[in-house]
Amino acid sequence: MSLKVSDLSFSYGPKRALDAVTFEARSGKFTALLGPNGAGKSTLFGLLTRLFTSPQGVIEVAGQDLRSAPRAALAQMGIVFQQQTLDLDLTVRQNLTYFAALHGLSGRDARTRIDAALDRLSMLERAHEKARALNGGHRRRAEIARALIHQPKVLLLDEPTVGLDAAARAAITTHVHDLTQDHALTVLWATHLTDEVLPDDDVVLLHQGRIRATGPAQDLCGTQTLKDWFLSQTQAPA
């Protein structure tokens, strides 16, 4: 159950933001969508999450076409946005309960799933704290837990470590890598930070709205470090 994007293009007026983007994120794999700022990652996330749509291209989420079956596709998707989207005046549990209800889950079923999701992210003991009282790392964890409540097949994370300190960043990256393997999740993780990518992770390199390379990180960078490879690919003339 993967995420497939084919021939996806998008323009803001005359400005081409994405140009014939095609790639696949495989099940049970952590796929890093690597790209410098302005590469088109956020536009791609907007399209993947159907915040807006494009007449060109196909997005398939766990076998569901986002255009013809948007609700079935969205139901298979867990999303962590770059912006913080917790209601700070509500507790962690209230935030998660709200989200569960948006996915049609309520009562005991929702409670069980919320507990499991929080436990998975080591956040269960903080369930009764107000989101405002949490630090940035814990807020992010709560958001990841929230994205997993409905047991999605595909997890999308848009630069989830922005604004976090090194320790929180490492912890969250490790957590999501573990989740990918333990739950056969398809993870698409947008970032411009190469140290969040492990050698056997898949990489999709997006630069100036086009896919420049795809494949396992270790295969792409060869003898170089991933950081050097990334810089060489994105600093060269397009």
Binding site: T49, R50, L51, P70, R71, A72, L74, A75, M77, I79, F81, Q83, Q84, T85, L86, D87, F99, L102, H103, G104
Partner: peptide, 14 residues
Amino acid sequence: EMGSMRLLLTAPLP
């Protein structure tokens, strides 16, 4: 502006 609208609009409902 704060992003919580995104959460609502990506719910699998019309």
